[in-house]
Design a protein around this nucleic acid. Sequence first.
RNA 1: GGCUCGGUGGUGAAAUUGGUAUACACGUCAGACUUAAAAUCUGAUUGCUGAAUAAGCAGUGUGGGUUCGAGUCCCACCCGAGCCACCA
Length: 919
Amino acid sequence: MVKYQPSKVEEKSRNKWKNEVDLSVPGKKFYLLVEFTYPSGDLHMGHWFAFAVPDILARLKRMQGYTVFAPQGFDAFGLPAENAAIKRGIHPKDWTYDNIARMKKQFASMGAVYDWEHEVITSEPDYYRWNQWIFLKMYEKGLAYKGKTLSNWCPTDQTVLANENVENGKCWRCGSEVIQKEVEQWFLKITEYADRLEWPDGPEVDWPKPLREGQNNWIGKSEGIEISFQVSGIRNQVLGTNRNPKPETRNQIIAYTKFPETIFGVTYMVIAPEHPLVGQLTTDEHKKEVEEYIKTSQKKSELERTSLEKQKTGVFTGSYVVNPVNLQKVPIWVADYVIFTYGTGAVMGVPGSDVRDFAFAKKFGLEIIKVIAKKPDDQSPVETAEDVLEEGWIVNSGQFDGLATPDPAKGKMMEYLSEKDWGKCKVNYHLHDWSVSRQRYWGTPIPVIYCVNCWEVKSEKLKVKSVEGKDYSLIEGDRYAIVPVPEKDLPVELPYDVDFAPRGKPPLATAEDWVRVKCPNCGEEAMRDVETLDTFFDSSWYFLRYLRYVLNTSKKDEKLPFAQDLVAKWMPVDIYFGGAEHTLGHTLYSRFFVKFLKSIGVINIDEYAQRRVHHGVILGPDGQRMSKSHGNVVNPDDEVAKYGADAVRLYLAFLGPYDLVAPWDPGGIRGVYHFLERVWKLFEAVEELSGGYGNEARIVKGKAVNVKDAKRQTLNETSLVTDKRLTIDDLYWMHKTIKKVGEDIEGIKFNTAVAAMMEWLNYLSAKAHRAGPAGSSSHPTSSTKSSSHIGDSSLVGLRALDGTPSVAVTRTEYETFLKLLAPFAPHITEELWEMMQNKKSIHDESWPEYDGRFVKTQVVTLVVQVNGKVRDSLPVKAGIDQKEAEKLALASEKVQRFLGNKPPQKTIFVKDRLINFVA
RNA sequence: GGCUCGGUGGUGAAAUUGGUAUACACGUCAGACUUAAAAUCUGAUUGCUGAAUAAGCAGUGUGGGUUCGAGUCCCACCCGAGCCACCA
């Protein structure tokens, strides 16, 4: 027999396969989705882990008779393409498409079933026109709006970043420190969906708990109360803020709190430096100080502001507010530990029961009042941070004294404040609206036109002012009407010739011919939006785009981004593989999109994936993240050249649980390669190849096994098995492994599935070894390690059902083995399958079914314990009752020794498992 | 500080969900085959006492608890990872 040569086998096998899926076929569907990839250049080991391993499940599902749809595409817009253009003068488009071509070739070497026929490339006008369509729908519904706020700004990439893309105060792409800059840009009102995006306790879909909790924390729903504090000394001035522009905010500062029950402990008020009232509240003698403070805090980067050892800073404004509950006058301070974008940007300072307020009060010598105590009569002063309590008993709070908090004090206080009209219950979210404008080139153009003329006409007609960001946009001081591009004019195509060099202006602004456009509304000169959409917009719905047409049918005249009948049939995705790093970004955004698309009636699902599975990370052999600078990159192409794609796939499946973060182990892959070689060689031991074909082995269903004495008796009287050459042990191993491998793949436990096949192989090899090439075995009766736990296998295991010695591996066994291995190692199994003289592809075979009766052994090992300690183990017939077990166990000399010849006081019996005597 | 996972041999990890702890693999050691090496095959491999493939004791981060029985459940603590975080 020729040596196993992966490179030869793999190319040959791959040429046999076709992966395109006809989405219109009836029957059981299985939509397997893996996060599509960014076309960064070459496939690395992470791609193999992410794509080749889920293919195991795809292949199993296929063999189980499902129509498996596992489409692929590229998340092709994004910064690296543009940076390559800046650095090396290659156009982003050319760079991207070159990479795509190269990566697709590399993808092929995985031998996976991914379908490229429905491919999605987000940088195709054909794709991003639907981004634009969705954007316009959102605009129509008021979910896309233009706003001017302080935003995360990356000075290196010259673009705004969403909150989710700021990691520890640094840009997720380039690692530069993010600064806060006031920028006008488009937002999506994801906050309107905050409630719907919150995960319930027992969700209907199977998504990882850490993800669900993470998203809920990020959404950060908090129920509290907004309390109004009268500003002392200012009369009848409108102190409206752009957050609360209501008449009732006259003379008032509104603070948000979750702990209203501590209001008697308020000794000061703090507002954020960005708070619009700062100017009005600052008295002349504090003006200089306050202005300076605001300046320095603005200069601080996000990083400094949040990580500077929580050292509190702040200044007094000179003004005071009055605490409504006790009419105490308390000073108003400005401090940057208050976050303007959360709540109302104003906080009541309760140093007696909040550690941050305590630190602030200590530093600036402000009064500290105890309002929560360990005991109702405790009046000891609050002196250290340990004395600051959030729960306990209310003290020094008038009629509320003596109540326990949080319950019932919190509720009572809420009621009281609402009744007096001093406070209003309010739900706040940590989640912010999603900023989607990017000041970059390689993305979806925002389908909006700005027209001065339209605004002038409109504002003449309109007697009322419109809302900035909804109707008009301020550009260099002029008002422009926001005119959405009409649907018929989509897509707004990205111009090819632009100047990419960052110069503080979006690159698209340099394409003047493109920018200048006739207003679709009035026909006058107008201009296009020169920014592009965040690429997370692209990836928020791509899984629907895969479902746009049935193979070989017209793709034209699309009315929607997808075919509704196909979506109805194929959604939701059955399993979605991806990285845990997308917990707060991509997966949250795409849930939002799906809920939005449902709200406009074009789809009818709440969650888009039935199950979500995270993959782990393959580190370099040194345990560091693989990177060129570490010099620890393991190139999958090299490994494939050395060991073959099958071995790489198998190793990635075997190295541990799928979500494991573990280093690449060069020894590990040699181990699985060795396994494949043994599978290859076992071909020679298949009985029919040495003894001729025929006598087809097949298991048929029949009556239940009933063995009186499995230790001694073979099964030749049963008619369960037509192939009498299979022993009861053979059947046990085969059926047990079928069960285990199938269940483990579905449970995403690939490592133990592989282990189970290794065990069976060990069993089969030992069997072949005993039989020997010409019956000359060197170990005729030694029971193998693998089979020993069955019990007395020297008697049971070595005799076939017809009583003759088992001689070799049967065709049934070997072919079943190949089928189980096929999803993991599709190439080698295909080749061996052909060598077994099968005509069809092994991947078109159906997955073997196991027979539960064979999964159970006839002989089980009964563990015998005395006082819970294992003292002996006996091979016994399966299913024996307690009486019989006791008799056998008590006969054991070891048991007698530990029982000391006294009868046990109590006996615990677990059928087919153990018996425990309590002395 | 909050949330979510984890902590088992020299290493990656298993453990039928409360029932023989360490499956499978790597590594190491020994043996066979070789002039030799590689490859392959066979065996050993949790620690301690023992000549032992006899027998026993200990053993899943630490300390307690529940139970006939705990890696698994409960309580307290220690350590590590990931995410979030002056969110009032």
